[in-house]
Amino acid sequence: MHTPRTTLSVRGLHVNYGDHAVLKDVNVDFPDRRLTAIIGPSGCGKTTLLRTLNRLIDNTEGTRITGEVLLDGQDIYARGADVTGLRRKMGLLSQRPTPLPMSIFDNVAFGMRIHGERPKQQIAERVEYFLRHASLWEEVKERLHQPAGGLSIGQQQRLCLARGLAVGPEVILGDEPTSALDPISTRHIEDKFTELKERYAIIIVTHVLRQARRLADHVVFMYLGEVVEQGPAEQLFNDPQHELTRAYISGSIS
């Protein structure tokens, strides 16, 4: 294995909602080809941090953002930054799977179609490829043109994964991506992450400490809008430097 480079880093990020400071001076480097878990008690700003990374936070009225988020060295909040292009580099898995109101095939093809017309043959090829990639192909190949809403929740989440991968992202963001899933589907997704982190930077928010232990290479612990501690998973879990981290990991704050 080679040393991971940083593709995504956050510098001096402040997010205010009205008078309320949601994120305070956040500085994080997300290593490439590693899985980073953002942990912390609910309401600590984990999800907000995730939403600033692909500028979904732009859609929330009344937020003020200062600081930088650098993707490949470019500030995504710079004036004139291409938001749709940026989002394309980031796949998102949300808490509950959100298939789009169209067929399984069209769900995966959606991103490709909006980003550029391509011959039918190529789209079909790529849909199959990414469905295989998300380990869903075998289950859905007979019913590609049926509505995506008919899939089980676990299958829907894998469909969302395939859909996200199909636009060719560099980073995969997961906002508690397994919290709505049953244990078996959770396993599926977790296995997928382990496989995918060989090629992508994966950043997940999770409130399940065991999941973070299982998956993460790198951990960011947040508390009340601040990053308290970050570092390699092994170190953070086994030898936390900060009192709060220790308390959270041992379960005395949550």
């Binding site: 593709t7 992202p169 560099e170 090629r199």
Partner: peptide, 13 residues
Amino acid sequence: MGNRIFLSDPTAC
């Protein structure tokens, strides 16, 4: 653009 990591990763070939 998107495929940079893809191609440069020998383990994924």
